[in-house]
Amino acid sequence: MIDAERFVRQILVEGIGEAGQRAIGASSAAVAGGHLANQVAELYARAAGFGAITPADGPLEPGVPVEWVADPSARAALAGARAVARAIAASALAREGGPCL
């Protein structure tokens, strides 16, 4: 059973739907860790409804040059958010067939 009330705004997104939400619930996100980026990722992964959250290999990276995003806290928040966006795309969009990453 998915919690439709809680995830309604995510289920509405094209490519997710109830099946995508179920796929997220059946997936685990490897994002946890002591770094701020990992903490932010853990918040987003819990909020998105991942079935399990496991440790990441290390600190998550923001994937942008410092000329674009300079502040370490902003870079960490960016890194954490991007990691979970990737995890959502990988679990929910994988159902559509094509590679998405």
Partner: peptide, 16 residues
Amino acid sequence: GVIGPVCGVAGALAAD
């Protein structure tokens, strides 16, 4: 609808 961490990307960039 909106994907939660996509809001997170927007917020992180806005903070910077």
